[in-house]
Amino acid sequence: MSSQQPALELSGVEYSYRRNPALRGVTLQVKPGEVVAVTGASGCGKSTLLHCAAGILSPDAGTVRVAGQDLAALPEDQRARLRRTKVGIVLQFGQLVPDLPLIDNVALPLLLDGHERGEAHESALDWLKQVGVADEAEAVPAELSGGQTQRAAVARALITGPSVVLADEPTGSLDSKAGQELLEVLLRASRYRGSALVMVTHDNLIAASADREIRLRDGVIQHEVAL
């Protein structure tokens, strides 16, 4: 990827849930290493934007490029591989596999990519150390607090060294102290990897920690502010 190439590029993206438009021609570029906060009222299309960027939803119109690759042009297998290797996703409730120990959850993208178990576990343990939950490596998500599972979700999102990390209300389920700690972990870890970070948030304090804030309203970008 050239230094000039955006880590994430959305161009004229439209998406509707049945007949209700959620995104109406959103265009956005995120540079490598940049931190972008997407804000707006509930139902304005923030999460839909993130899901389109992650390739979870396919836009009705427009293009999404991750590390220069047009998602729509890729067959499903390659799109999944791109999501596994170039995109990290952190959702509000972690979305870890409930019956897998933390170490397996974090190692999952590497295991799915065909890495040997020992090698994947070694890397996962490194990341669990970085996010501060290495002691809980063998615990399953149900045995941990919300903050701990979110930290593991951050580790899972970053283990493959993605071009872009997409976080949907990453601190939404946490109290303010745990939220602040997680945000620091997320910012530090993505900067360490040089990954772009796009965070959907309602929290002004979290938005203030970004390089740029994008405010959505009724599926369109209302304004952009460099912070």
Binding site: I56, E76, D77, R81, L96, V97, P98, L108, P109
Partner: peptide, 19 residues
């Protein structure tokens, strides 16, 4: 429902449909 949540979590971790 529980299994679909598990599969959705796997897909979010990058598992392809084939996997």
């Amino acid at each position: 429902a529980a299994r679909e949540r598990r599969l959705a979590a796997l897909r979010l971790a990058g598992a392809s449909r084939k996997q």
